[in-house]
Design a protein around this nucleic acid. Structure first.
Lengths: 215, 215
DNA sequence: CCCACATCCTACCAGTCGGTAAGTGATTTC
DNA sequence: GAAATCACTTACCGACTGGTAGGATGTGGG
């Protein structure tokens, strides 16, 4: 008899992958269960409904991102540096596991599903628990201190979008540009993103270039 | 008797809105047709299948974006300036009509649907027709000239992500942060984005700080 | 040893999906 | 003025959806 916790974890993992790839509406319960050789009813035994399953998947993702954020806040000194570390870590996370960032994009975009997951008695973390400290961290930087939460939220959206779109769109881009071009982009992605984040947060180009255009 | 062209245009418009909001899998043919008081079979009379309808919607979107890109290329002088104008125009487009940017995000993210739309004998423009000149334009800038298409594609993805995520996520952000905060973010979005694009392309802060641009 | 429980199954449900077939009434064409 | 065409309808199809009911097969405690 396979212990419930193991099956649950396996289901969460496979559900995460499939939801990232096909979205909430495009992923059926039987599709997820079949990945582990189970029936859809076995899945419903562990997660009472589809919205609750989605809620559990999002809670796991949120927890993961929150850990990355806290780790970055421990590591960096200034808020700027902490944010740079955070976005670099998220970008790196997308390198080994692009599904997670695709899932993040889905969760931010598919309002109906995310809403249903939360309203249906969701437990555990939510994406909001990640976004709020992230916005607060942006408001703590020199460039944005004193600005409203809306401004900081706008910055957060831009940086998240810059970080997550490529992994989410990689499949389509590959179909259009070919594997070689996309692979090159993937390799340089983290580096390019770090430069972007640094520039946005500090208003000056990355250190490596000796040129100092900023006044 | 309502002329076919008019009904077709109405269907495309409503389909675009619903597809932007609920995604390909989350939007049923009857849902679209019902918006105009028609039956799903009337829709299938104008568009032979769901993938073909989606293809037509994406073709219209691609045409729209391509017009924005060409207009920007006519207006700006340097490639950097042309890109700035383009992204500002796209951001502004999202202000009056956020559905279009949500749809763009969907199209870039939902690989299955976009693929099906193209393979199913799609006519007209595709997103690839927009991305290719966009990538070429980035390769024509001083900062990225000589770099490979992959690098330019990475930059394009980042800038597009920064431009489009907020409109696509606005609904969920409103649920989490409230209308006031999101409204403020929406108002400052275009301005913030312009600064980001300028910094990424030229490596220096926006002109308003008195810094002198490239020599 | 037996009972309670957990895990997973088969069988089934109403509802919806995309799509086909055939027909109706208006408009145009020859 | 008959025929063809157009826009659109009702009626229907098989496949699949999320979800329920009840049973089979194990496992652990008293």
């Amino acid at each position: 008899m396979i212990p419930a916790s193991e099956t649950r974890q396996n289901l969460l993992r496979e559900a995460g992958k499939l939801l990232a790839e096909h979205g909430y509406q495009g992923t059926s319960l039987s599709m997820i269960a079949a990945r582990l050789g189970l029936t859809k009813q076995a899945l419903l035994h562990h997660f009472k409904s589809k919205p609750l399953l989605y809620g559990a998947v999002l809670a796991e993702l949120s927890e993961e991102l929150l850990n990355v954020l806290f780790a970055a806040m421990d590591q960096g000194e200034t808020p700027e540096h902490q944010l740079e570390v955070f976005f670099s870590a998220v970008a790196a996370l997308g390198q080994e596991n692009p599904d997670r960032l695709r899932l993040l994009m889905r969760a931010l975009t598919e309002a109906d599903a995310t809403e249903a997951a939360r309203s249906n008695g969701g437990e555990g973390r939510s994406l909001q628990d990640v976004l709020e400290p992230l916005v607060a961290l942006i408001q703590a930087t020199e460039a944005w201190e004193g600005s409203g939460a809306g401004t900081a939220l706008g910055i957060a959206s831009q940086l998240l979008g810059a970080t997550c779109l490529f992994p989410a769109a990689a499949k389509i881009l590959t179909a259009g540009f070919g594997t070689e071009v996309v692979d090159q982009a993937e390799q340089e992605r983290c580096d390019l993103l770090h430069k972007l984040v640094h520039q946005v947060l500090t208003g000056m180009p990355p250190q490596e270039l000796g040129a100092s255009p900023a006044g």
